[in-house]
Simulated assay, not measured.
Amino acid sequence: MTATLNVSPDRDEFAPARRRGGLRRKLTFDRISFMVVFLGLPLAIYLVFVVSPFIQACYYALTDWSGFSPTQNFVGLANFKRIFTDDIFLTAMGNNILLAVVLPLVTIVIAFVFASLVTVSGSSRGQTRGLKASGFYRTVSFFPYVIPAIVIGIMWSLIYDPSNGLLNGILVALGFDGAKDFPWLGDERTAMAATIFVIVWSMVGFYMVLFVAAIKGIPAEYYEAARVDGAGRLRIMLSVTLPMIRDTVQTAWIYLGILALDAFVYMAALNPGGGPNNSTLVMAQQLFTTAFTKGQFGVACAMGVVLAAVTLIFAGLVFGVSRLLGGKDDAR
């Protein structure tokens, strides 16, 4: 007995499945409510509180608005021409660029080294692990990050105090008599370095924990294979760990760069006047002074537009350099 299977050429066996898929794609109440709550509402908030103020700032940057007058006279690009011929603003921009180069580099290097030490740089025998009491080190290093930035700035301004500061007291007690009454924040040679140290101290713990989480996701077999090949701790850090967490490092670099291009709270707490010879003045400080002290909101908005443009350029450079170094290929 032979079974015969009759298949009609006009019959579409997958039509019911396609019809069911079409029904799923129809707009139902659940689908619409989901889109409204999780897409429409956040997009509306972003447009109202981020995009709209930025567009307003771009418009005000083209006027002579004082911030309190009901009218604004259109002046075109005069405000931009003014700030790019202002030596003080150019100095502030240079300080921001210096911070954007030095601060992420120093913070990421220190955080990466610490993260490697507490995760994979322990004993070279047995299972891959970090140093002993690594949990304690993570907790202690993360503690400064939970302190508000303004509190950190005020605290370190007292530590740096020339007369009664803790730092000079310790140095003098150790025999460094030249540190007596030395103004760390009042000397042009040390003001920026002292400020960068404070920001790094406050941020390195957070990025250490961020890198620790990324390193925990690397398969242990990679480290075991590197050990078998005779790689040391430094070689493992540079050839195994760093390439595997490249995306995390890129994200950290962008966030730290944005912090460096702002840095208003730290600078205002440590050196409200911009430091000796404006050595620690940043664009955000100059923007605040121009707007609320001088009453030149049009010029201040122009500074804000320039600051936003510099931030976007910085993020683009980080993405570009990461791609050139092989970040895209590693992500695959």
Score class of each variant (00 low, 15 high):
Ala3Phe: 09
Arg246Phe: 14
Asp161Lys: 00
Asn6Gln: 12
Phe136Trp: 13
Trp253Gln: 09
Val102Trp: 04
Leu131Phe: 13
Val305Asp: 06
Asp86Ala: 05
Pro9Cys: 06
Met155Leu: 15
Ser33Gln: 11
Ala92Lys: 03
Thr85Asn: 14
Ser163Arg: 11
Leu307Tyr: 03
Ala331Lys: 13
Pro104Ile: 11
Asp262Val: 01
Leu234Thr: 12
Ile254Leu: 05
Gly273Thr: 14
Gly76Thr: 12
Ile88Glu: 11
Val51Pro: 00
Ile258Tyr: 04
Met35Arg: 11
Val265Leu: 06
Gly217Trp: 01
Leu131Asp: 04
Phe136Ser: 06
Ala191Val: 03
Ser33Gly: 08
Asp247Cys: 00
Leu166Ala: 11
Leu39Glu: 08
Thr311Ile: 11
Ala179Thr: 02
Ser322Thr: 11
Thr2Gly: 06
Ala291Trp: 04
Ala309Gln: 06
Leu171Ala: 09
Val140Lys: 04
Ala231Cys: 15
Asp329Pro: 00
Gly135Leu: 10
Met267Ile: 14
Thr241Tyr: 00
Met303Asp: 01
Phe319Ala: 06
Pro9Trp: 07
Ser116Ala: 13
Ala115Thr: 01
Ala179Leu: 01
Leu261Val: 04
Met192Ser: 01
Ser123Tyr: 08
Arg323Tyr: 07
Ser123Met: 09
Ile154Cys: 01
Val48Ser: 11
Gly186Val: 05
Gln72Glu: 12
Val321Ile: 15
Tyr255Arg: 07
Val305Leu: 10
Val310Phe: 07
Ser157Phe: 03
Gly40Thr: 05
Thr119His: 03
Phe211Tyr: 15
Phe89Ala: 06
Gly186Arg: 02
Asp10Ser: 10
Pro104Lys: 06
Val50Asn: 11
Ala302Trp: 02
Thr289Asn: 08
Ile159Asn: 01
Gly40Ile: 03
Gly205His: 06
Glu13Ile: 15
Ala17Arg: 09
Thr311Lys: 10
Phe211Trp: 03
Ala115Cys: 04
Ile245Ala: 08
Leu98Asn: 10
Gly205Glu: 02
Ile108Met: 13
Leu307Asn: 04
Lys294Trp: 10
Leu39Trp: 06
Leu242Gly: 03
Trp201Glu: 05
Met208Leu: 12
Asp30Lys: 13
Val299Thr: 13
Pro16Cys: 09
Val50Thr: 12
Gly257Phe: 00
Ala214Thr: 05
Pro16Trp: 09
Ala300Gln: 00
Ser66Lys: 06
Leu77Thr: 11
Ala263Cys: 13
Gln296His: 13
Pro9Leu: 03
Ala193Ser: 14
Pro42Asn: 12
Asp247Ala: 10
Leu99Gly: 04
Asp177Leu: 07
Lys132Leu: 13
Val249Trp: 00
Pro53Arg: 02
Pro148Lys: 08
Val51Phe: 09
Phe74Thr: 12
Lys216Thr: 10
Asn6Arg: 12
Arg25Cys: 05
Trp184Asn: 00
Asp181Met: 08
Leu287Gln: 06
Ala231Ser: 15
Val51Tyr: 07
Val146Ile: 15
